[in-house]
Structures are given as C-alpha cells and as structure tokens.
Amino acid sequence: MARTTALPRIRAASRRWDWERIIPILMISPSIIAIAIFVYGFIGWTGYVSMTKWNTLLPDYTWVGLENYRRIFQDVRFQADIRNTVVFTVVFIAGCLALGLTLAILLDQRIRGENTLRSIYLFPMALSLIVTGTIWRWIFFPGNYPADPSGINLILAKVGLEGLQWGWITDPTIWPGSRPEWLKVKLLVPLALLPMTLAAIWQMSGFTMAMYLAGLRGIPDELKEAARVDGASEWQIFRLIELPLLRPITLSAVIILGHFSLKVFDLVMAMTGGGPAFATDMPGVNMYYTVFQGNAFAKGSAIAMIMLILVALLIVPYLYSNRQEEM
C-alpha cells in the first residue's frame, strides 16, 4: 500500500512535478476545509458554548467552566439517559451480532433461495428510522389489555397466549430496580427499552448478517477441508477456524452498531418520545429538548459533548489502529 506515496515524489525536483503535487492538494482542499469547519470548528464551538452561561434565547458567552457538566450529571433525566444508552447499546449489539452470525452461518449452508432470504433480512436497512419507529410503535402499543388489546397483545390473545401480554413500550418497570445512594435513577434495565431495542435489531441485524456472510465467504475452503481431513468436527471447524477469522468483522460490526446506538434519536422520537418517565429517553433526545424547548443552549451543548466523548472513546482507538496499520 505504501508504495503509492512514492509515485508523485519520483521527480520532485522538477518544476512540473511540483505543480503536480499541488493540484491534488488543491482538489481535495474544499473537502478538507469543509470538514475542518463543519466538523472540527463546530465541535470546538459547541465545546466552548458548553462552558458558558448561554441558557436563554439570548446568547451569553460568560465563562462558567464545567458548571453545565456538573449540573447535567446531577440531573435525573441525564442519569437515566446514560443508563439507557448503556443498556440499549449492550442489548442491541449483542442481539445484532448473535442474530447476524446465526443467520449468516445458516445461509452459508448452500441454501435454496439464498438471495431471496438475504434480501428479506436486509431490507429494513433501506428504511428510515422514522418509518421503522412509526410501524413498531403501533405493533407495541399495548391497548387496554387484556379486555381490549391491540398490536402484538392482540396477536397473543388470538393464539391463546394472553399470559404473555404486557405493557411493552409503556411499561415503566426498571429491572431489578434498586437505586444506589449516589444516583437519582434506578438501575438497571428499563423494560420499555427492550421492545425499542427489538425494533432497532430488526433494522440493523440484516446488515450484521451481510457482514458476517461476506466474512464467511472469504474463508478459503481449503482451510476447512484440511481440518476435516485431520478429523475435526464441524463444530471444531467453526470454533477454531471460522470464529477467529471472523474477529475483525465482529470488531467492525461493533464499531458501526455501537456508534449507531450511541447516537440513536429518530427511533425514540418516532416510538415513545422518551417515556414512560425516562425509560426510553436517550442523550440525543434530551439534547434536542434541552436546547429547543428549554432554551438551555449551554446545557444542551454539554450533553452533546458527552455524546461526542462516548463516541470518540469507541471510534478513535479504532481509527488510530487502522491508520497505524497502513503506515
């Protein structure tokens, strides 16, 4: 890979080649400047605002240091957001990986109609999260069960499983529900978050499946053949050969799914708006309301910066390691 860098430098001494070195830089400059302003400049500005007093509709750039951060961390809603983000991220990633890997392995068994099935698993990816949320909100709307159920509770009633009816996205229960002294929210799993996670898995697991399938197809058959000759069982082949070789794919998937779940916004807006209480609230939603409803621009900026830091913790090591490999 590194060889390509040598190309333009070959005749660096001549004027003509000098010009040839400038043109590519010139051509990429608009993008670089745009990114510099729209990404790094704006992030810097948001970071700055997050340390000011601008919490009304009139900008006020009085410096207050980390005061806004201190306040959001004491806020019930933000504490719930962090809890929800952690739960959502873990369940969502685990669900997508498990489902994606299972489907990929099964599809890799020389299946008739593989193309059709693959398309079916993957199509939700083409939908807007607003569409997904609108549909699943209706599916998970409990109705006045058991007397007058709707959505999925209605199906349960029809197949005689009334006992499984519950409030879905409206159930406020937090499981197991204990609250440590230093927190204002109960831990750990808000039950209403689970149906929402199921909708998110519906949207993204096909994508994970496609990644794993591509990975499985990339493993040379000879490798497996050789193992079979040596008397390895199919399970051993999977565990000792395929699974380790799929590790980079799992890493990529975790990165993609993780940054998706840390940023989730549309799905919450379309499905629950964050309720009941803050059982399904997320930092992105909180930021939107804090800024555009409560006029607290500095506080909202602080929430946004926390979101950015969470994403950066996930992404930066990944980007950095990728960069190192290529140097």
Binding site: T46, G284, V311
Partner: peptide
Amino acid sequence: KWRFRGSETLFTLILFGMFIPYQSILIP
C-alpha cells in the same frame, strides 16, 4: 493515487467526521 505527506492523517481526520453525533455540531 496522489498521496502526499500527511495524507493518511488527513484521511483519518476526515473519517472521524463520519462517526460524530450530529448533536455536537447542531447549534453552530
């Protein structure tokens, strides 16, 4: 095809923009 000194770093910096939560740039 026309890499230059620092182009890899630049590329990584550009890539980062793909992952940011857009809330963090929304107000500006």
